[in-house]
Simulated assay, not measured.
Amino acid sequence: MADERAESGGMRIGDPRVMRALAHPARIEIVEHLNDTGAAVTATEAAALVGLSPSATSYHLRELAKYGLVEQAPSRGDGRERVWQSTSSGLRIDADLDEPATRAATQTLIDLYLHRDQERLRAWIQRQPDEGPDWRDAGTIMGQRLLITADELKEINAKVRELVEPYRMRERQESAPAGARRVSVSYAAYPED
């Protein structure tokens, strides 16, 4: 039920049923972890990531599988435990916003992502004094106001995507240089009223 693959092996999501299935903090964390790492995990391993019981996590994994966001991975051995893997390396919301049900599902899912990203940013700000000077100086919050056309904004978006692509965790985790850490990059560019 998840839609066609997007650029960089990602998946486009436009179906409101898929968005509603994903719109749960634990499900987003599971899908994000699997997409970022390419790992295959059991419900017990996923439960440790999201702080839920293995049975609750198993339910979430089955729901995600119903909508094509994860799938069963090959067995690791005895075949008794179910192993799950991602079906893509990323997600892109690509919804028909003229459809009320799709608009509502999109808003709910985006609100969840924004809340999660704000919490991550707040956590960084709180622990920033405890970080080493290199990481304190490297982290940033930046805001710019531009005067541009829609085509220029599309060009900027493409350049930002191209700039960060070589550093994606999934592709780089085996070859990252010493001292590399997972870093969240949240980027939003939108016209003001």
Rank of each mutant, 00 (worst) to 15 (best):
M1R: 15
M1N: 12
E4C: 13
P16W: 01
P16M: 05
M19S: 05
R20V: 03
R20M: 11
A21D: 05
A21M: 06
L22H: 02
I28A: 12
I30C: 00
V31D: 03
L34I: 00
N35K: 01
N35T: 05
G38A: 08
T42H: 00
T42F: 00
A47K: 02
A47V: 05
A47I: 08
A47Y: 06
A48R: 14
L52Y: 04
P54A: 04
T57E: 03
Y59L: 11
L61E: 10
K66T: 15
L69C: 05
V70P: 02
A73Y: 04
A73Q: 04
P74V: 04
R76M: 07
W84F: 03
S86C: 08
L91R: 05
R92S: 14
I93Q: 08
I93K: 10
I93L: 12
D94I: 12
L97Q: 01
D98C: 05
P100E: 03
T102C: 08
A104D: 10
D111H: 10
Y113E: 08
R116P: 06
E119S: 12
E119C: 11
L121P: 03
L121V: 11
A123D: 15
W124C: 06
I125D: 09
Q126S: 12
E131P: 04
G132V: 09
P133E: 13
P133M: 12
W135A: 08
A138Q: 14
I141V: 15
G143L: 15
R145E: 10
L146T: 07
L153I: 11
V164E: 10
P166F: 01
R170Y: 08
R170N: 08
R170W: 06
R170H: 08
E171R: 11
Q173L: 13
E174M: 12
E174F: 07
A176W: 05
G179P: 07
G179L: 07
V183T: 14
Y187H: 08
A188K: 14
A189C: 05
E192I: 15
